[in-house]
Amino acid sequence: MQQHDKLVMMANQIAKFFEAQGEVRAVPQIAKHIQDFWDPRMRRGILEHVASGGAGLDPLALAAIRKLHPAPQVSAHQA
């Protein structure tokens, strides 16, 4: 869906910045960046996308997303 496209684009942009530092250093920094700045539903979105094949993701972004902590589930009626 369109929403996933946007997340893929954002993840790829982040990966591009860290790429210059080489894979070993880049991957954990990309993961940390996503962990620190993306709200759980966005992280769930990108994880879903990866689970369904991860099309369009930069290899570094993909490697980083695999390292993300699972995002907590939020459901209605808990407020």
């Binding site: 929403q3 993306w38 709200d39 539903r41 966005m42 995002a71 907590p72």
Partner: peptide, 18 residues
């Protein structure tokens, strides 16, 4: 303890219905 949505993300989430 989890980061929340930024403005563009809020709008995306709104379009998505969440």
């Amino acid at each position: 303890p989890e980061p929340g949505l930024r403005i563009p993300n809020m709008l995306d989430a709104a379009v998505e219905g969440t």
